Simulated assay, not measured.
Amino acid sequence: MRYIIIGAGAVGGAIGGRLFAAGHEVVLVARGAHHAALRDGGLRLTVPDGSLTLPIPAVDRPEALELRPGDVLVMAVKTQDTTGVLESWAGRPVAGGGTACEELPLVCAQNAVENERLALRRFRHVYGMCVWLPATHLEPGKVAAFGSPLTGILHVGRYPSGTDRTAERISADLETSAFLAPVVPDVMRWKYAKLLANLANSLEAVCGPVDGDDLLGLYRRTVAEGRAVLDAAGIAYTGEEEEKRVRGDRIRLLEVEGTERGGGSSWQSLARGTGSIEADHLNGEITLLARLHGTAAPVNETLQRVANAFARERRAPGSMPVPELLDLIDRRDRAPDRS
């Protein structure tokens, strides 16, 4: 199996780098300065044990690569970029006949829960991946991953449900590459739980590290609101005890030489000044479900709106005082229902 990593940022770069270092065939797909750095100098993957410079082939567009039977497409872009990826890769020919959307498995190694649904409109063989992989990508050609002794936990399963031989083979390859990769028949239950954890991404992005009484209290309020909305919608998600049993002590977060960990994926989007952020598909998922099921989500709705404004205006991450955000939430909570 050859792994085509579409989006070689923090998650995609760490997965692709670890697979390549373990002897698996990998191609990285990236854009702009990141692609140029990968093409010219390889991927520099830094982990707690040291730094690896990996000469992984890299391309910047689908047309630069000939697809073949046995390829696995791993989509690791942010959700706001998913539609463009699907459009550009679905119709690509596969050697021997057929197209990517007909013949090849597509793995959604992404946060949020919308990607698989979007992918299934185009691709026959879609797999969800619940990603727990603390990593950073802020400079072209460089990715740092902080987990040890395992780099991350990647639950894999067919979408919308089930398992098969392909999922088992992907899992086996990942487990030779410093990951724990359980094959599960209910991967979306794990991804909805991860969605709840990712609701804090916007909070961290706009106000900074989630510590101190005010931010921790707001974090708990954000997640509790998310759970209440999922419950109202009748959506199942894994609980903390089940997650702890899987994670155990398999991953510890350690320092990586020469790299400050910084924040999560939304914080990194603001730090890189990309102009976009995942808030519509994280906090915005809770906002949508609340509206569909006749309940309210003022905390997540406000975080969605504020995070989008930060990205659009290219404001520095962590620059909003907590009292200002709390005031915006309280004003939204008191606003009359106009439905």
Rank of each mutant, 00 (worst) to 15 (best):
M1R: 09
I5K: 04
I6P: 01
V11N: 04
G12C: 12
L19I: 07
A21V: 08
H24M: 06
H24I: 06
V26P: 01
L28Q: 01
L28R: 01
A30W: 00
G32R: 15
H35D: 03
D40W: 08
L43V: 10
R44N: 10
V47F: 11
D49N: 05
S51W: 05
L52Q: 15
P55Y: 07
E63Q: 15
E66N: 09
L67P: 02
P69I: 04
G70A: 02
K78F: 07
T82H: 11
T83G: 08
T83Q: 14
V85L: 09
E87S: 15
A90D: 11
A95G: 15
A95R: 15
A95M: 11
E102K: 04
E103P: 05
E103K: 15
L104I: 02
C108Y: 04
N111W: 06
N115E: 08
L120M: 10
L120G: 02
R124I: 07
H125E: 14
M129R: 05
T136Y: 13
K142V: 14
A145L: 06
G147A: 08
G147P: 02
S148A: 09
P149V: 03
I153R: 11
Y159C: 05
Y159N: 07
S161K: 12
R165D: 15
R165Y: 12
R165L: 13
A167Q: 09
E168D: 14
E168W: 11
R169A: 14
A172F: 07
A178P: 01
A181Y: 01
P185G: 10
P185M: 05
P185I: 07
D186C: 03
V187R: 01
W190V: 09
W190A: 09
L195G: 04
A197N: 15
L199H: 00
N201A: 08
A205V: 04
C207E: 03
V210D: 00
L215R: 14
L215E: 04
L215Y: 07
R220A: 13
R220K: 14
R221P: 01
V223E: 01
L230W: 00
D231S: 04
A233I: 02
T238V: 14
E240Q: 13
E241Y: 09
E243K: 09
V246C: 12
V246T: 15
G248V: 06
D249G: 15
D249N: 12
R250V: 06
R250E: 10
I251H: 03
I251W: 02
L254Y: 07
V256C: 06
G258I: 10
R261Y: 14
G263R: 07
G264D: 03
S265E: 10
S265Q: 10
S266W: 02
Q268L: 11
Q268F: 10
Q268P: 00
S269F: 12
A271V: 12
E278K: 04
D280P: 03
D280H: 13
H281F: 15
L282N: 04
N283D: 13
A290F: 01
R291S: 11
R291A: 12
T295S: 01
T295D: 00
V299F: 02
Q304F: 13
R305Y: 10
R305F: 11
V306R: 00
A309G: 08
A309N: 11
V322F: 10
E324P: 00
D327Y: 09
R331Q: 15
R331G: 09
D333H: 10
P336E: 14
S339Y: 06
